[in-house]
């Protein structure tokens, strides 16, 4: 058990380390490093000046050395300064994180609350009318481009009906629950529609597989009522793979959050990362991306543990 945990921890650490280097390297390849930006801002800077500045900032050193310097500082708690927000990176990051956690938390709950029962209902009688309808809807959800759905929601609820804001969040200290909540309705709806189809399909597949097992068939043949069979035996077995797949999907969910937040101008981590990349705020983009990766890896790790705990057959090699 500890060996298994240890192995997974190592794996996550390796992924994080590789990611940090790759992202750091890619950031260096983005158009306009700080010196380029200064040059374009101030045409008087000569190429010698630029070279001097580069040396000053250490930009002339090899990439590995720069990376290790950055890594050393980051481990020491110095994450640099965000150009875009004119704040130290952690101060810019934390409010956005809170917003995204709220958005994703509500979405995940809603999506699972809808998707898991729907998947079960479909699996109990495969190829029935119910199954057909649920499948159709699930596929529609999976196939909708999230950014387009967001535009449609804005068109319907903001442009035509005018009942919900097209984006943003409540002004600071905006009072009343509804004042706060109305800004969440469309993003949550958008993200939920984008993810519920996947959850439904996973649950359906896992449940059909679980119902196919011999002992479930036996229980059914012996006359245990369908409801009891389904809930008693199969659900537990079906949930095991679903836990894993849902957790493997955190990355996908976050990609959805980036789109949703960007279209709805919702100030979360996704929009922050997008803005940081587009605005040449490399410190912020780098740290934010790595932070999200770290959170996702922790989520996967927890799901692995849950899986091992749920499934008595797994050996913790």
């Amino acid at each position: 058990m500890t060996g298994f945990l240890f192995q997974r921890l190592i794996q996550s650490a390796v992924v994080l380390a590789v990611m940090s280097f790759v992202i750091y390297w890619l950031m260096g390849l983005m158009p306009g490093d700080p010196i380029d930006l200064m040059i374009s801002a101030d045409p008087k800077i000569t190429s010698e000046d630029a070279a001097r500045l580069r040396a000053l900032y250490g930009l002339d050193k090899p990439i590995t050395e720069r990376y290790l310097n950055w890594l050393g500082a980051a481990v020491g708690g110095d994450f640099g300064f965000s150009r875009l927000y004119a704040k130290p990176v952690p101060e810019a990051l934390l409010p956005a994180l809170a917003n995204t956690v709220r958005l994703l938390g509500i979405t995940l709950c809603l999506s699972l609350l809808i998707g898991l029962p729907a998947g079960m209902a479909a699996a109990i009688r495969p190829y029935s009318k119910t199954d057909y309808t649920i499948n159709l809807l699930a596929f529609a959800g999976i196939s909708l481009p999230a950014f387009w759905l967001a535009l449609l929601l804005i068109i319907v609820f903001s442009v035509f009906l005018g009942v919900l804001p097209a984006g943003g969040v409540a002004a600071l200290g905006g009072d009343g629950f509804w004042d706060q909540a109305k800004y969440l309705v469309l993003p949550v709806a958008n993200l939920t529609i984008a993810s519920v189809g996947g959850h439904t399909r996973y649950m359906r597949a896992a449940m059909i597989e679980a119902l196919r097992q011999d002992y479930i068939r036996t229980a059914r043949a012996k006359g245990a009522g369908p409801a009891r069979v389904v809930l008693g035996h199969a659900l537990r077995n079906a949930l095991i793979p679903v836990v894993t797949i849902v957790s493997l999907d955190f990355g996908f969910l976050f990609s959805g959050a980036l789109i949703t937040e960007t279209v709805f101008a919702y100030p979360g981590m996704g929009k922050l990362i997008f803005d940081a990349i587009m605005g040449n705020d490399y410190n912020l983009a780098l740290v934010a991306l790595l932070f999200v990766t770290l959170l996702i890896l922790i989520g996967n790790l927890l799901a692995d543990l849950a899986y091992a705990w749920l499934d008595p057959r797994i050996s913790y090699r």
């Binding site: 493997l248 990609s255 991306l289 990766t293 996702i296």
Partner: peptide, 12 residues
Amino acid sequence: IALPLLPLLIVL
């Protein structure tokens, strides 16, 4: 599969 791919692709 587990990585947040969209932001990475945006960087790329």
